[in-house]
Computed example of a mutant assay.
Amino acid sequence: MILPIVAYGDPVLKTEAVEIDKDYEGLKELIDNMWETMYNAHGVGLAAPQIGKSIRLFVIDASPFAEDEVDGKPDPRAAGLEGFKKVFINPIIEEEEGEEWAFQEGCLSIPTIREEVYRKEKIHITYFDENFEFHEETYDGYAARVIQHEYDHVDGILFTDLLSTLKKKLLTKKLTNIAKGAVNVDYRMKFPVTKRKR
């Protein structure tokens, strides 16, 4: 089932989410719905707070980045992303390392806005998958970036929070309009100011 994506301004997006256990009611259906919702909106990641659930869960399919090129050659930061599709439950980024690099990020909860965000190039993360099997893994490049972006969501952080004070000020009107629903999107959203869905 395609769920409405919560828009910028809803308090759930600024709340630190809670851990869940393997007996969380309706977990499989929730994950299935998150995949369907994400693909319908043409996203590469979706966190549970973005559909109004303040739990530490996100899904990622970074395979669209696998075809990225730089100067006509495969982008090394996209290496290994073919079929990169994962569920992260109760994730903990244990370490971030390497140089910070900039990339234009967007967010399904903040449509029409894309800005350069600096993030470390490599992460070490522990998490449970959809079968509640434990994983301890290291990622770099685009995989690390998408994970960091979604991980911020379960910590109540949006990519706009990472921008300079000046850049945030320049975006104030656009962000207010998004919260009011004064934005054109081709997927279902729930807007906090109007409390309406479309």
Rank of each mutant, 00 (worst) to 15 (best):
I2H: 06
P4Y: 04
I5D: 11
G9Y: 00
D10Y: 02
D10E: 05
P11A: 01
P11L: 00
L13S: 08
L13R: 10
L13G: 09
T15P: 00
T15I: 06
T15D: 11
E16Q: 09
I20Q: 11
I20Y: 11
I20M: 09
E25F: 14
L27N: 02
K28T: 14
I31L: 05
E36R: 09
T37M: 01
H42A: 13
H42C: 04
G43I: 11
A47V: 03
Q50M: 02
D61T: 05
D61C: 02
F65C: 05
A66G: 06
D71I: 13
K73N: 06
D75Q: 03
A79Y: 12
A79M: 11
E82W: 07
F88E: 00
F88Y: 13
I89P: 02
P91G: 04
I93M: 07
E95W: 02
E95M: 03
E96F: 08
E96P: 00
E96D: 06
G98P: 11
G98V: 05
E100D: 08
E100K: 12
E100H: 09
W101L: 10
C107Q: 14
C107L: 14
C107D: 15
P111K: 11
T112A: 04
V117G: 03
E121F: 01
H124L: 15
H124D: 13
Y127I: 06
F128R: 02
D129L: 09
E130Y: 05
N131R: 05
E133Q: 12
F134K: 14
E137K: 14
T138D: 06
Y142W: 05
A143T: 10
A143K: 08
A144C: 00
R145Q: 13
V146C: 08
Q148K: 02
H149C: 04
I157H: 01
L158V: 11
F159C: 00
F159Y: 11
D161R: 03
S164Y: 08
S164T: 15
T165F: 08
K169G: 12
K169T: 15
T172A: 15
K173T: 15
K174F: 04
L175P: 01
A182L: 15
V185Q: 06
Y187T: 00
R188L: 13
F191N: 00
V193W: 09
T194M: 06
K197I: 15
